[in-house]
Design a binder for these strands. Structure first.
Lengths: 240, 240
DNA sequence: ACCTGAACACCGTTCAAGT
DNA sequence: ACCTGAACACCGTTCAAGT
């Protein structure tokens, strides 16, 4: 069974019900994941290695397999751990759009705290307990706001996919430092002008895009569109 | 220099101007990339290995390094090769939105022809010759349609990022076969109903979403929003 | 001058040998 | 019963030895 798949999570939940064997050493799944997240933050997903992880925890690398099935499982668990770190700030309001915006920005902030982990959010469906808790409350919000179930599901998936993708592009592609931006500008303005007249002319604009701006543009576009669809689906809704 | 970076492509373009040394063996960069793409299509990006690639080409794996700097370079070149395979179908019209839709659907189709390569499109900026050619013509289309340069750049990036992300989610996450969908439905409807009442209730809807539907929803949302922004930026535009 | 086998420094995972 | 060192089967990359 593939780590992260529905069948895998199901089996894992069943195993959790069985009594845990005590561990003699100080090694814990929590400690392993802490160290793994540090490793990813510092050196990226490629830097997350069972052997380097063991070195950081001062144990033989084979010992990790007592607590974890393998490398892929560590990544899957890291993803759900970060999903569990999402903290919704601000008060509960009766405006569903404002609450959705806040929730999605919290989601985005949690992802950007561990930028090098973002590719892992795209590798498979998110089916861990924290992912499910988020799905549950988000869908509840949308359904309670009067959205037909099918549209609520489409809205949830579209919006969360957008948040993840936006963070992934931002953290793995964007030129962030001033030096990187200067290199990029030089690259575009140095292209053969006969072949790429537009790119040469737009060299400045091509490096002036702000990731937050792009996120907000897409977010508002999707929310506007979904609101229109929601109104069309449930036109006769009286305000309370 | 990191393969795929601006500096790397720049240096590569300079090297191409220098006279090429003849190769005694039948090995070509083209043949290498053909085999590499086959390998990715069959076994995914993890299956693309310098050693397996060499085996497929009947040569020692060290010989590949005569034609290619390393593994990462192969992936970068594959991405630009797929970008070069985009074929725009249909006639040239004077309706910029219709042309944009056609171009973006062609982009999507090209990506979905090699679904297992899609994660590589998110790993860095796309700066190869075919990527630049697409950027050039897309930005030309938008600017010619009357978009202010800064907005044209934002529109281009937002739309292409959306196409890539959508394909990445579709090819690496979605349950595509009937069996997979059935497993997912069982997973959601089998969850503890006290904890996840909404997910259990929506188990059917959660597995009824179609990837093409989700793509069209997002595409129309973004195009609508960008059209509004474009009209606001250039209100006094007379039809010819 | 060109090509590449052998070597080096890694990696994930397993399992028999240790405690 | 639990833990883990050693072993196995890989991997990317380099370079000296071959032609």
């Amino acid at each position: 069974v593939e780590p992260g798949s529905a069948a895998w999570w199901q089996q894992r939940a069943a195993d959790a019900d069985r009594p845990r064997r005590p561990r003699a050493d100080g090694l814990t799944l929590d400690r392993i994941l802490d160290a793994a997240l540090e490793l990813v933050d510092e050196d990226g997903l490629d830097g997350l290695t069972m052997r380097r992880l063991a070195a950081r925890l001062d144990c033989g690398h084979a010992s990790l397999y007592r607590h974890v099935a393998g490398h892929d499982e560590v990544v899957v668990l890291l993803v759900d751990r970060v999903l569990g770190s999402i903290r919704f700030d601000g008060p509960v309001t009766s405006d569903p759009r404002a609450m959705a915006e806040r929730a999605l920005r919290s989601y985005r902030a949690a992802l950007l705290e561990h930028p090098k982990l973002t590719p892992a959010f795209l590798a498979g469906q998110l089916l861990g307990p924290n992912a499910l808790a988020g799905r549950e409350s988000a869908l509840r919000l949308l359904v309670d706001a009067g959205m037909p179930p099918a549209l609520a599901v489409r809205a949830y998936l579209t919006l969360t996919h957008f948040v993840i993708a936006s963070a992934a592009f931002e953290s793995s592609g964007a030129a962030r430092t001033a030096g990187e931006r200067a290199t990029m500008r030089r690259y575009f303005s140095g292209l053969p002008a006969r072949e790429y007249p537009t790119l040469v002319g737009l060299a400045d604009e091509l490096n002036a895009v702000d990731a937050d701006d792009e996120f907000e543009l897409g977010l508002q576009a999707l929310l506007d569109h979904l609101e229109v669809l929601a109104r069309a689906a449930a036109p006769a809704r009286t305000p309370r």
